[in-house]
Amino acid sequence: MVILGDLMKKQGIRSDGRKIDELRPVRIEAGVLKNADCSSFIEFGGNKIMVAVYGPKEVHPKHMALADRAVLRCRYHMAPYSVDERKNPAPSRREIEISKISKEALEPALILEDYPRTAIDVYIEVLQSDGGSRCAGITAAAVALADAGINMRDLVTACAAGKVDNTIVLDINDEEDKKGQADMPIAYMPNLEKVTLMQVDGTLSKEEYKKCLDMAISGCMQVNQLQKEALRKKYFGNEEEEEGDMN
């Protein structure tokens, strides 16, 4: 018998009314800023995140360039008004760490060898934060990178799972993140079936760990459909599949 805390209203229903394997509402839009080579906007639960990609472009300072591939640079940053208590606009240690792991989550999907001596900059700006902002940021960044026309082996899609009141649940929100027992953000390449980001905060048994990972990946697969829809909507609108003369 599971002892229920305040995060699970009754068996299988969470404090925000979701089922244990249900995502928060997600909306992704591609191409929202004019200047960026490409951009995307994601609403993931209460998260509102703007992502822009600049590049491939020349590297400055020049000594940072690599002779055989592009340098991928990533900045995750939160607006001062994005959180409950005003945040100092200067990057915190947390933001610097998330910038690094986001870069490492996106890099495996990019064919950087196609762009020697250049840089690709990814800017993730969190305008409002909720639980799972790094996953939402990575998901939106992958859409912006595809939109920018940078060669990619696969999209990268991210989603967290975790443990709340002794139950493994999908897509932890802010409250569950703060009061729950464990949080596991995962980024995943859905066609290549490879994990590109994995972190765990909290304690999980071996069985729970496996279950949590499976659940996070199933969440990634759902998010991936929304990424694809956003890109298709931008490029192909309601066009029928192409059959006729292209030229």
Partner: peptide
């Protein structure tokens, strides 16, 4: 921005800003 006490997005031509 619901987490802010007040917020606005302004677009002036292609210039776009948010205040919180």
């Amino acid at each position: 921005i619901q987490k802010a006490n007040g917020s606005a997005r302004v677009t002036l031509g292609n210039t776009q800003v948010i205040a919180g």
